[in-house]
Amino acid sequence: MEKIIELKSVTKKFDGVTALRNVSFSVNKGEVVGLIGDNGAGKSTLIKTLVGVHNPDDGSIEIHGKLVANWNALKARQAGIETVFQDKALCPQQSIVWNIFMGKELSYPFGFIRQREQIEVANKLIREIGFTSKLIDAESPVGNLSGGERQGVAIARALYNEAELIVLDEPTNNLSLNETQKVFDFIYNVKKSGRSVLFIGHNIYHVYDISDRFVILDRGEVIHMLSKEKVHTADDLMKIMRETIKGH
């Protein structure tokens, strides 16, 4: 199976706290990986290291089997990895369109942007992700949006950029049932198109439904990697999770 990205024995410390200890982890082409673990287990740290936001203190990162040096967020995006961060990574005073194209603006030579084209795309995306209010358009500031709508913008951004791997850090937090379903539909569509997803969630049942493989993180260490064949029901997964927490 082709590995899109792989972390090899990665360790990440934050002044004194070891957030990741000797973590090896990979995402294969076309699969949905569910990453689970308790609060503070290091899930967000893991994906931030993966997508170049954090520099690992030790270990290495490989893309398509090739070692990468000076991995950073820009390189990760150029390599086709898009992320919906837990904090959504939006700029509330800026318009929806500028947020959607943040860091990947459509531009002419010399860097002047294609504003009209960007607005058209953004308006289309807003309709696709289903904003209902007529007052909201591509040029409205993100700060005027509700939590769910902001999440929608963050997801629309990942959706637009045709990524090979989409990383979602608790994307269904503070979403309604209806909105949550939309996120899952989106993940199924990504999977159907042969792309990969790395999904972090606290709802074990949700994670079970959409994932092909589960990775359980506990206090900075990967303690289980299970393919779906080995875990027959969501309740089994729940049991495994409970046992890890009990072990504390």
Binding site: L74, D87, C91, M102, K104
Partner: peptide, 12 residues
Amino acid sequence: DNEVSASQMGIN
């Protein structure tokens, strides 16, 4: 606006 968001999206 938001330095952390900007750097997470790959802006230097």
